[in-house]
Design a protein around this nucleic acid. Structure first.
Lengths: 230, 230
DNA sequence: CGCTTTGTTTGCGCTTGCGCAAAGAACTAT
DNA sequence: ATAGTTCTTTGCGCAAGCGCAAACAAAGCG
């Protein structure tokens, strides 16, 4: 369901992949630095080879909205394929990253040379469309608690690390970050987490969330959750 | 800013376009009928040659969420390019439509034959991604009145007809429809429209909305709006 | 032409969740 | 350590908007 299963390189032979890789340029990005700046001319398409990053947008009045977190194997900046485009989002490394980048001409040549690459890119884009449609549906119809539960289960699948007593979201993640990801506020996130903590569903600290009973979160996300009362 | 400017056929020579068209099959769809059913195997990609349609999704519990309205020149169902995919949305004709459809193999062959077609498709998809990101941002950060103003100005640009005393949304559009498009309820939409009607900004009736002072709506959408108080 | 269906309006009460403020907790740096 | 920064928690009041209900309006139908 994630871009996970399908990377830009899926189905390519090792030598094809090597060829595509060597036409791009590699760059190391430190935690906290930006790989892509919202508003800049979109000149390159990127492949995240290592590390984690946040894909987000800032509103005119300064509020931040996060769309998703990227992990190794994710592709972003595909808008660069269209001449004259501007990046509509920013991508910020939340840990040290290694990225591959291709400029417009290069990627176009590679696409012309390798049909499978084009198919992969199309699939990546339709997957993004699907995910964003889900996000719109959730924001339009679900309440905050449910959206937070959903975000956490997604993050767990994507970047969860199995530990002794549950699944740890393996990344610094503040209440504010979760709020930006779920279209709510830091306060609401904090209150919801406190409540879950009391029920033993999660265990959380500063920028750290451990899911002790992931199943319960899935139930809340799908609203079959054991009623809070009774 | 809309898919308007760029259609699937942009930049193709007339004979190329004719070739692509004749490989697809044409279908007439009556108002109210569905062109694509959410949940069905995605076997075809579509081009809307004539008419208007609604692209929407139904939640498990029956609520409907509308993503956008399509007009002549719009492409949808691109997910069909990926083998095994399922349509995540439904597309319903809101007036009589003419559509062109290509099945997976056909479109793949056409894409292999014509690089420009692939570029167009990629651009269409990145545009959809951008629009959906905007929609997420709006739902996450803006209040109902503002989202409704935005939706109306968009609809006006997309399917507005200039008439004597303003711009008419040239399509049957109920309060419920607008609510599904803006992530709110029929009641809220009705109240907001009533208020605007009193201020002379719009003039609305049953499934019909006329923008008398479109500019004012833009101001509300961008929140520079003449303060309601004072 | 009256009857039904479908869409719209608006009063009212209520829930959700926002957001300030202030206190506390955890990490950083000197 | 100590001070400063950053993140988190929670009380409290409040506004937005939900959703029922009931009345009204407009279109469709026999």
């Amino acid at each position: 369901m994630d871009t996970h299963e399908l990377s830009l390189f899926s189905g390519l032979t090792p030598s094809e992949e090597a060829d595509v890789r060597k036409h791009g340029w590699r760059r190391a990005v430190e935690r906290g630095a930006f790989i892509v700046h919202q508003g800049d001319p979109a000149t390159s398409i990127f492949y995240l080879d290592e590390g984690r990053a946040k894909l987000s947008q800032v509103t005119p009045d300064g509020q931040e909205v996060a769309f998703r977190y990227l992990g190794a194997g994710d592709t972003f900046g595909a808008i660069a394929i269209t001449p004259g485009a501007i990046y509509p989002v920013s991508v910020e490394a939340v840990e040290d990253c290694q990225v591959l980048a291709w400029d417009r001409d290069t990627i176009q040549k590679l696409l012309a040379k390798n049909a499978r690459l084009g198919l992969n890119l199309t699939t990546i884009l339709t997957t993004m469309v699907r995910q964003l449609q889900d996000q719109v549906r959730e924001l339009a119809t679900e309440r905050a608690e449910r959206r937070i539960a959903r975000a956490l289960t997604r993050l767990a699948r994507q970047m969860g690390r199995r530990v002794e007593n549950g699944i740890l979201i393996d990344m610094p993640l503040s209440r504010q970050d979760l709020a930006e990801l779920t279209g709510t506020t830091l306060y609401t996130v904090s209150r919801v987490l406190s409540q879950w903590e009391q029920q033993g569903i999660v265990e959380s600290g500063r920028e750290r969330i451990l899911l002790r009973i992931p199943h319960r979160l899935v139930l809340i996300a799908d609203d079959l959750g054991p009623p809070n009362k009774e």
